[in-house]
Amino acid sequence: MDMDVLQLLFFAGLAVFLGVRLYMLLGKPSGRTHEEHMREERERARAAGREPRPADPHAEPAPAAAPAGPAFSGPAAAGLTAIAGQDPSFDPDMFAKGARQAYDMIVQAYAAGDKEALETLLSEKVMKAWGASIDARAEAGQTLVTEIERLKKAEIVEASLNDNRARVKVAFSAEIASETRDADGAVIEGDINTLKTVEEVWSFERDVTSRNPNWRLAGVRAA
């Protein structure tokens, strides 16, 4: 698969970014100024035989509307709010949907030994460890076959922002079948016909000051 396509798919981050930029361009009023609008209102009022009611100079000013902002809930709310405060394009719902796609892509790329694909999806530390595992498997003449039957859950359970480093942890629960075969094709571990429930927490990270919208897998632990 072309790497540009992988980057676009991963968390749909670029799509969100472009969507925000589009809103900035299209969501703002254009054309008439405020003064021109008020003048047209006065002219329409005079044509209808009425004058616009002048503002009461003694009236108390209307309270300012509270600024709109993200309202998140759950155990990760504080962290999500902090991240959204630094990255307006961040959307937890889209992140969770993208995480589901990323899970499948990463698991399949690791099984296939596709280090080129993994380099765009993993942090340097994780890539080093997983790359070594892929190399050892290749040197032994082994192949790994993995099938994801069903991804039952992808839920954000924790989020934080330290300096410019945003981290979001996602709890996954998946039904997976896998087996490892030797150079002759004999199964030496696992069983592709047996499903197992795998529950893990994946940590994704991103520098919110970076123009690159992609998040990278920075850690995996058992749930």
Rank of each mutant, 00 (worst) to 15 (best):
I83P: 04
F11E: 05
L217C: 00
S173E: 10
A55P: 09
R46F: 09
A55H: 10
A62K: 10
R32Y: 07
L8T: 06
L14E: 15
H34V: 14
V187G: 02
I106T: 05
E199D: 15
T209L: 06
A68W: 10
A218V: 11
Q7Y: 02
E175V: 03
D56F: 02
M3P: 15
H37D: 15
A138V: 07
R39D: 13
K169Y: 02
G13M: 05
V145L: 09
N193H: 06
V107L: 08
A159L: 02
S173N: 09
S73I: 02
A99Q: 04
A78N: 13
D207K: 01
A132C: 00
Y23Q: 12
L195D: 07
P54L: 10
E158K: 15
T197A: 07
K153D: 14
G27D: 01
A65S: 08
M105D: 14
K97Y: 04
D104Q: 07
S160V: 01
A15M: 15
V198Y: 05
R206N: 03
V201L: 11
R165A: 14
E43N: 02
G85A: 05
P54G: 08
D163P: 01
R206D: 00
A66M: 12
W130R: 09
G113T: 04
A66F: 06
N214S: 11
A68L: 14
E116I: 07
E200I: 13
T33S: 15
P88M: 06
M1V: 13
E124R: 10
D104V: 04
A62Q: 13
R211S: 13
A64G: 05
I83V: 06
Q7S: 09
I148A: 11
R137V: 00
A71K: 07
Q142C: 07
L8G: 03
